[in-house]
Amino acid sequence: MLKLKINGQEKEFIESDFPQTLSALLAHLSIAEETVVAEVDAQIIERKNFASEKLKPNSQVELIRFVGGG
């Protein structure tokens, strides 16, 4: 099993299902790319680079979006 830490939660993938890119991960989670901003291992990833951002096992991914706030 390969692991990713996404928003603090560990997710396990069998090797063939492991998302190779950030875009693939978002598709797997059913999250629309244009609604989130992402950090991989504490680096902000520009949205235009989601498709080219390679994920490695044990990476820490933060997916963040705007919510209501004052």
Binding site: N7, A32, T35, V37, R65, F66, V67
Partner: peptide
């Protein structure tokens, strides 16, 4: 004003941003 939060990955509901017309309002 808007805030930033982690997406709930088990329940990724629609973004509220779509409800705010950014042509009318400065975010």
């Amino acid at each position: 004003t808007v805030a930033l939060r982690r997406v709930d990955i088990d329940n990724p509901a629609d973004s509220m941003l779509a409800a705010i017309d950014q042509k009318k309002y400065l975010l």
